[in-house]
Design a protein around this nucleic acid. Structure first.
Length: 870
RNA sequence: GGAGGCAUAGCUCAGUCGGUUAGAGCGCUCGCUUCACAUGCGAGAGGUCGUAGGUUCGAAUCCUACUGUCUCUACCA
């Protein structure tokens, strides 16, 4: 028997340990069953679990448990990500506190620290994930830098290198002066900042003509190698080909004509700094301009900056502006709002800098990746995210994959110190294959962390070995993650998988939104509004947290997480607990029989029919990945049908004297509860298992039981309708009681004139649920003061004596009549519409006719009642 | 600049193929220590589905424009 009160803390962790011990999470690669597999988005080893992980894991665990119960051979593979830059930043911070600089420590010792970090924090995050109840296979736990993954990275890199899809080149990249590394476009965050437009100009050597422009970054002028105008600009045509002089560095630079310049914008003149601006770089390539870097990697000005060398970039800017002013060159300064990029890790303003980096050529990879989604091999849920995906993939630029960091997969390229050859092979070279020289050194940089994440769905399964797991579980079935990493991760997995394995990595992408705080703000460290899911788990239990994150949420939409929501969900779990306790208490010591051997009451038939319907609905919704609606469906069924009605309807039998009837009703109660627990198990694994363990005739564990299926034997549509009518009748009578202030404890008489004779079988139910003294199947006595209430199945009279207030009663009936008349107008309007009759589906026309008849009947009854009252 | 989302009850949000008397939770009002549960039970109030057109027999749902709002993306010096 379960405990009196629902206290998830007392059983959740024990159940989890037991499931693990039983090996329920671990599938075998050899199996006759169809497979269903997922890989988890690997959390960074930097950190702390947040509610987003909670949501992500809740979704995936619900899916995997559902599929497991449906009989699939299920694998859910967990793992963690080395998170190159993010982790390195953390370790550098840690070192700084000890007064140690990364460079002094040296690469090898630094990596030792990083691995120690991984052992500590990687392990911690795994423990946190377990608290979420995730039934992933921990025996296959992966890490982006373990052997499988590293081999896959090497194989992919070498293959792409040899096909010319990876190249090294000088490009403008986003440079973080604090992390001292290149960043990919996706790693830069833009925000609008207040800046200035400084207007000034360069003058021809003869001092006669000055071309004026505006700039937001005057310090880059030291690296200017041209001034550009639009070729069609009449104002400047005569200047093209002439030269002007850059102050401070006294460099003579040409005035060039390029389409890139917008004549309408500003003065129509642009200063060109190829080394420090992406557009200028392109212009420089077209016009063969020199590229002069004026900044160091740490954001200070270099020797090319002349008198400003050594200054920080912002200090240099200040001094240059001041000097331009003194020299009378500066014409005006205006405030200007513009978007400034910053490093997504340390939030330092990034500097576009020309440098030599490794790139992945995207166009040939993007094409098949676009095609795979276009032709439906991969489907996004909800579908609209396909647009986001296409939008990015169709405008994609080459991917900068080198990072000037130490923690990560080192770029597998060696350079020969003797002949300068570049060597990229799957095995480390010892001599130069070109000249036989032995002075080889490996590229210092590591790969973007997403390069290895992109291989995750197959690298973790042993793709390089063509292992049993790879053959059994790849391509994976579903990928679930937040829409915020479509570009970072989903898109890259798709093209990487197509390139390396020739197959799509998964067939369905299930997108969820971001978990926000009560005020709708994104949770972040700087706001301090982040919530540790473990906090909620301690207080409310895992099931409550998970259900609160999933219930009623549409796919892909953000979730505003509030304490109201979680408390409401806790109440639901408590409801499940208590309803189960009711059933178990009543079953204790009683022998039950199979439902098919029971003499079913109308209430039994009603709940079995309803259960059947819900089973079908929930299953279909889960198969369409509509988890939010499926959970909602269960919530409503359990609370509003099973608890509010069925349990109440069983009480007259349970507390009655007919032993056979009691046994049968108990059998149905237990059967329905058993089904509820199974249906609910994927969403709320712990509470359902805990209760299941006290069920009569239980199996070993609910998580390896079969998911309920539609059973055509339990479909009693006539009895179902009857109980629905009964519910309506009870509601009306309760309404009368409430409206007339009849004390709930007061037992009264009810007169029923049933048009549906089967209502007469429902006397016990009416009596119990409306607290009646007796039910009389006739009209009230002549002259007895009653309140009448009407449904399509029956006319009821409640004798209330002096409580009956003719005026109030007239008002009530009139109002109800009004409603009914509106409905009649609506229905007959439809039925008089020739278009509707001709084009609407027949069943719809039929149901409108039925409704109309029902309302007309009601109208007659209500009008009669009004006449009586007058 | 480009792309996309959202706008439904006081609040937070569901609403699937166009057809339900438009739903839920919370909040609110009234009444209840009824033997599973006061984390509860019963009864209510509360909506012109952002605005204007259009398609349709029929629109919260599809189309167009507008308004408001949020997000992503680009980075015009």
């Amino acid at each position: 028997m379960i405990e009196k009160t629902y206290q998830p803390k007392t059983f959740e962790s024990d159940l989890y340990k037991w499931w693990m011990k039983q090996g329920y999470f671990t599938p075998k690669a050899e199996s006759d069953k169809p497979y269903f597999s997922m890989v988890t988005p690997p959390p960074n080893i930097t950190g702390q679990l947040h509610l987003g992980h909670g949501l992500d894991n809740a979704i995936q665990d619900t899916l995997i448990r559902f599929k497991r119960m449906q009989g699939y051979n299920t694998l859910w593979l967990p793992g963690t990500d080395h998170a190159s830059i993010a982790t390195e930043v953390k370790i550098v911070e840690q070192l700084k506190k000890e007064g140690v600089d990364k460079r002094d420590l040296g690469r090898e010792s630094f990596l030792e620290r990083a691995w120690a970090w991984k052992d500590k924090y990687g392990g911690r995050i795994v423990e946190q994930l377990k608290r979420l109840g995730s039934s992933c296979d921990w025996s296959r736990l992966a890490f982006t830098m373990d052997e499988n993954c590293s081999k896959a990275v090497r194989k992919a890199f070498v293959s792409m290198y040899k096909k010319g899809l990876i190249y090294r080149g000088s490009r403008i990249i986003n440079w973080c002066p604090a992390c001292k590394t290149a960043l990919s476009d996706a790693e830069v965050e833009y925000s609008e900042q207040d800046g200035h437009f400084w207007h000034y100009g360069y003058t021809t050597p003869d001092g006669k003509t000055t071309v004026t422009f505006a700039t937001t970054r005057p310090e880059t002028m030291l690296g200017d190698t041209a001034v550009a105008v639009n070729p069609n600009d009449e104002r400047y045509k005569h200047l093209v080909g002439k030269t002007v002089v850059v102050p401070f560095v006294n460099r003579e630079i040409p005035v060039i004509a390029d389409e890139y310049v917008d004549m309408e914008f500003g003065t129509g003149v642009v200063k060109i700094t190829p080394a420090h601006d992406p557009n200028d770089f392109e212009v420089g390539v077209r016009h063969n301009l020199p590229v002069i870097r004026v900044m160091n990697d740490d954001g200070t000005m270099n020797e090319n900056a002349g008198e400003f060398a050594g200054l920080d970039r912002y200090e240099a800017r200040k001094r240059i502006v001041a000097k331009l002013g003194e020299m009378g060159i500066l014409q005006k300064t205006e405030p200007h709002k513009h978007n400034v990029g910053s490093c997504y890790r340390c939030h330092t303003t990034v500097e576009p800098i020309v440098s030599k980096q490794w790139f992945v050529k995207m166009e040939p990879l993007a094409k098949p990746a676009i095609e795979a989604v276009k032709n439906g091999e991969i489907r996004f849920h909800p579908e609209r995210f396909e647009k986001t995906y296409f939008n990015w993939m169709e405008n994609i630029k080459d991917w900068c994959v080198s990072r000037q960091l130490w923690w990560g997969h080192r770029i597998p390229v060696w350079y020969c110190g003797d002949c300068g050859a570049e060597i990229c092979e799957e095995t480390d070279p010892t001599v130069c294959p070109n000249c036989g020289g032995k002075h080889l050194h490996q590229d210092e940089d590591v790969l973007d962390t997403w390069f290895s994440s992109a291989l995750w769905p197959f690298s973790t399964l042993g793709f390089t070995e063509n292992s049993k797991d790879f053959k059994a579980f790849f391509p994976t079935s579903v990928l679930s993650c937040g829409y915020d990493i479509i570009f970072f991760w989903v898109a890259r997995m798709i093209f990487s998988s197509l390139y390396n394995t020739g197959k799509v990595p998964f067939s369905d992408v299930l997108m969820h939104g971001i978990v926000r705080d009560e005020q709708g703000r994104k949770m972040s460290k700087s706001l301090g509004n982040g919530i540790d899911p473990v906090e909620f788990i301690d207080k409310y239990g895992t099931d409550t947290l998970r259900f609160a994150l999933i219930n009623g949420v549409a796919n892909g939409s953000d979730i505003r997480f509030s304490s109201d929501k979680i408390e409401g969900t806790r109440n639901f779990m408590n409801k499940v607990w208590n309803a189960s306790r009711f059933v178990l208490m009543n079953c204790e010591g009683k022998s039950l029989v199979s439902v098919k051997d029971c003499n079913l009451s109308i209430a039994d038939k009603w709940i079995l029919t309803k259960l059947n319907e819900v089973t079908k609905q929930v299953t279909e919704l889960l198969e369409k990945f509509e988890l939010g609606m499926a959970a909602q469906c269960m919530y409503d069924f359990v609370w509003s049908e099973f608890c509010d009605w069925y349990i109440e309807l069983t009480k007259p039998v349970l507390y009655g004297s007919d032993d056979a009837a009691r046994r049968d009703t108990l059998s149905v109660l237990a059967y329905v509860l058993d089904n509820i627990l199974r249906l609910l198990h994927p969403f709320a694994p712990f509470i359902t298992e805990e209760i299941y363990q006290s069920m009569p005739n239980r199996g070993e564990s609910i998580m390896i039981e079969r998911y309920p299926e539609y059973n055509s034997e339990y479909c009693f549509s006539e009895d179902f309708k009857l109980v629905e009518e009964l519910k309506e009748l009870i509601a009306k009578i309760r309404n009368v009681r409430s409206e007339y202030g009849v004390a709930p404890s007061k037992r009264i008489r009810l007169y029923v004139d049933a048009s549906d004779v089967r209502i007469k079988q429902c006397g016990v139910y009416l009596a119990k649920l409306c607290n009646l003294e007796d039910v009389v199947y006739s009209n009230a006595l002549q002259g007895e003061k009653t309140v009448k209430t009407v449904t399509s199945a029956a006319v009821c009279e409640v004798p209330l004596g002096d409580l009956v207030d003719t005026e109030k009663e007239t008002e009530r009936i009139t109002k109800e009549l009004e409603n009914v008349k509106n409905e009649i107008a609506r229905a007959s309007g439809k039925l008089n519409n020739q278009g509707f009759l001709a084009k609407a589906p027949a069943n719809l026309v039929e149901s409108e006719k039925t409704k109309l008849a029902k309302y007309k009947e009601l109208q007659t009854q209500l009008e009669n009642r009004l006449k009586e009252l007058r």
